[in-house]
Design a protein around this nucleic acid. Structure first.
Lengths: 218, 218
DNA sequence: ACGTCCGTCAACACCCTGTCGAGATCGCTC
DNA sequence: GAGCGATCTCGACAGGGTGTTGACGGACGT
């Protein structure tokens, strides 16, 4: 039980006495061990014992820091999505300046963030089917991005840059979904996939034609 | 190890003496039990014992018919993709008659097939991360569809109906990927999703704009 | 009647998860 | 610098799932 150690939602490591403690180091050690191991094996192939040993503690002690293996991944995912949010910034507020360049910037930054943590992204895709918490967190994050894109599409239509068409929300969902799946295939490298160096431009083209009916919107 | 009972790839139930035998019934019973249970719980929540009891046999006997729980799902997936292939038929050979109507027919038929077996589809998405065989089978199937769509795009460009643009294969990958992910969200019902009655039209519009730059190609 | 497959299952060995309770250790106060 | 509560640690256990082994019954051709 311990304190509110589940994190994922706020700055982790809160709820204990102010300063740095040995416990914080251990928690971090578990996290970094997880991300390291994820670069070598599947999430399913990693046992709690692996995580514990990698962090220099015993298996029962692991449970002091995280309630389960999935909770570790959840924390990792939380960090990545925060990083992605920060990277995206407010590009969508400046679409009018140069639509194509701005949309490209958005997609490109997401690509860079996910690509930098592909092990975590792949692992999350792996457990999304079984783990409710990961599913919910991802749903929440995606919802935010969908709403941002939806608003941007509405704004582009209002200023006459984009023609009317599909409900903006549906279009935003479809485009975001496409990106997710295409990135997954590219990073996982199995099945038909777009080459990593082309993926941003491919996605961009489908976004632009979907929103503007042209790949060079004015 | 019994005979070549893994199936998934050819007509299942071959490799034993000609006529119907009790074993074929059992094998079928396992399959139908799996699809039934999948409508109620997650794949991970179903144990081999559940499958065996549902089929009226003991757990060790299950192993006589299938090497693992995943192999059952693989057989199920094989059937669904065969059904989808059959449903798709040769619509893509008649695009010139009425592009919008034909593309819509293609998407709509896939939608109907997957929607009719959403439990299996969802379960496959769940294990794709962990199971190599499911991953490979899905990759093979997807590759076929991608190639068919790629060829259709090339043909449409050649006859002047579609403008040049992205490499046809990359476009085909992106569009197929989008469909997969959007359907998944719609069927799973979690996270931002397109309403089931709208999903075909939403996907169609993105396909048409991506391929023709218009939603009403001539 | 007799071997030989097909089909069946009780029992076993194994691995992984999650929990409990008994300690060690840390940081603070008096 | 002794004492105390919170933090931290782990050995040992219980439970549930998987996959395998070895022995047993029945159908079928000869």
């Amino acid at each position: 039980m311990a304190t509110a150690r589940t994190s994922a939602g706020a700055a982790p490591g809160r709820g204990r006495r102010a300063g740095r403690s040995a416990g914080d180091d251990r928690e971090l050690a578990i996290l970094t061990t997880a991300e390291r191991l994820l670069r070598q094996r599947t999430f399913a192939e990693i046992s709690i014992d692996d995580l514990a040993r990698g962090a220099g503690i015993s298996r029962p002690t692991f449970y002091f820091y995280f309630p389960s293996k999935d909770a570790v991944l959840l924390t990792l995912l939380d960090r990545v999505t925060e990083e992605a949010d920060a990277a995206a910034g407010d590009v969508l507020d400046h679409l009018a300046e140069d639509p194509r360049a701005r949309w490209r910037e958005l997609i490109s930054r997401f690509h860079a963030t996910f690509g930098g943590h592909r092990a975590v992204v792949l692992a999350c895709a792996e457990v999304r089917g079984t783990n409710v918490e990961v599913r919910r967190l991802w749903a929440r994050v995606l919802e935010r991005w969908v709403q941002a894109v939806e608003a941007a599409i509405v704004a582009e239509r209002r200023r006459g840059a984009a023609p009317p068409g599909l409900p903006a929300r549906d279009l935003a969902i479809a485009l975001n979904s496409m990106n997710e799946r295409v990135w997954y295939a590219t990073f996982a490298g199995d099945g038909p996939a777009v080459a990593e160096r082309d993926v941003v431009d491919v996605l961009l083209d489908v976004w632009l034609t979907g929103i503007y009916r042209t790949t060079s919107p004015g």
